[in-house]
Design a protein around this nucleic acid. Structure first.
Lengths: 224, 224
DNA sequence: CACGTACACCGTACGACGTACGCCGTACTA
DNA sequence: TAGTACGGCGTACGTCGTACGGTGTACGTG
């Protein structure tokens, strides 16, 4: 039943791979991955659940497509700058994107075949490193190291129950500290108290490790 | 209906928190997290699904308990060695454990409240770092960095579709290389070919990044 | 001994889920 | 006008977590 242009009708736009994908992303972002069910997705699009199977052979395939869209949002390393700032930009962008789509973290584990956007990124990063003088092996090491850090950071960040510094300060004082009695966790207690007092902001944490890694990689270039 | 000691009976041992938990871990390890359903778990224990709710208030609670068992398996940093080798041992152990229980990666994201084993680890690592001369802030940085690397590495490792070097060599040549045409992915193609030729083993990858991070942290100790 | 209570366990039912299967209008081609 | 392809959907099956209300056994108390 095609959607005819009935003058008084609701004129729901026709389904399409694009539209299904966009709606799935919106749902995941706003209500979490759990809200993305075929029935719900269909309802949201004014269609039946089974209609979606004309555009994606299975839910798995839909999830793969969603992941690849996320990777497309990540900035490629710019070519005109030095290798460190290029890689830094990409890493910072990746973290931002993964923080915006926390559900993507949990999906990455189960996807075995990398999507095309993922491949493009690996190619661009490898190109950047190789041109900077890293050997094939060293570039591979750097890739693993950088990606591990970015994904791991995003994973930890996603499990934090707060979004802003103020929320963190509140939670830390009211929830975390009481869970850390000084006799049982002297060091954690000390750390928590000191960090709260100093106005610690976990959002700035990412750049520390990233720059440490970049600096440590620098002397490993052949042309350094 | 308690399990009486009927001589000819099947004499199924009584349920217990411990037994339920063990069985859930076995199922997750052997058949993946998807196999862990209350019905299946009950059947596996010779009981009904609802019986499990006497030991865990919900499936969420069971999953939390499973995660904490995984963290218990991780070696604490030994106290008698230098900070680097102590932290290295813990990191290597963590990676091994997470590789043994790949399902744990995907769970960590959604758990907001850390389990007791998790807390014990953070305390021990922080203690090790503080005693080595790191400031509170620096120890926090190091904690984030190290954990990000370990979790991120485990996450990437879990999505690799092979387990041994030989499997990798086979897959790389038959599956990966064909996906990387030289005109589209010149650098990735070069890397893949070179790594295969050199007998690259991804299992050794972990220690490279770990030692790089440890070495880069060394000069940040106050008493260095 | 009888009786009440607590505990461990379970059967059934409800509303979700992914998706196999087959049907039905519409639109276009011959 | 008949045939065919396509987009879309209704129904049904087997799964899931779990709320609710049982039922039997064990044990403390009279």
């Amino acid at each position: 039943m095609a959607e005819e242009d009935v003058p008084g009708g609701e004129a729901r736009p026709a389904l399409s791979t694009e539209r299904v994908l966009r709606e799935a992303l919106r749902l995941a972002d706003e209500e979490g991955l759990g809200a993305v069910s075929m029935r719900r997705l269909g309802r949201e699009l004014g269609a039946g659940a089974m209609s979606l199977y004309h555009y994606f052979a299975s839910k798995e395939e839909l999830l793969d497509a969603m992941i690849d869209v996320v990777f497309e949002e990540i900035e490629l390393p710019p070519e005109e700058t030095g290798w460190q700032s290029a890689i830094r930009r990409r890493a910072v962008s990746a973290r931002q994107v993964l923080a915006r789509h926390p559900w993507a973290n949990s999906l990455m584990e189960s996807r075995t075949t990398p999507g095309s956007a993922n491949l493009r990124h690996h190619e661009a990063v490898t190109a950047c490193l190789r041109r900077a003088g890293f050997s094939v092996l060293m570039a591979t090491h750097a890739n693993w190291l950088l990606d591990s850090y970015v994904y791991g950071f995003a994973l930890q960040e996603a499990s934090l129950p707060f979004d802003t510094v103020d929320e963190f300060a509140d939670m830390a004082e009211d929830v975390y500290l009481p869970q850390l009695p000084p006799d049982q966790f002297p060091y954690l207690n000390e750390s928590a108290a000191a960090l709260i007092a100093a106005g610690y902001d976990p959002a700035e944490e990412f750049i520390f490790g990233l720059d440490l890694i970049l600096a440590a990689l620098e002397p490993l270039r052949a042309s350094a």
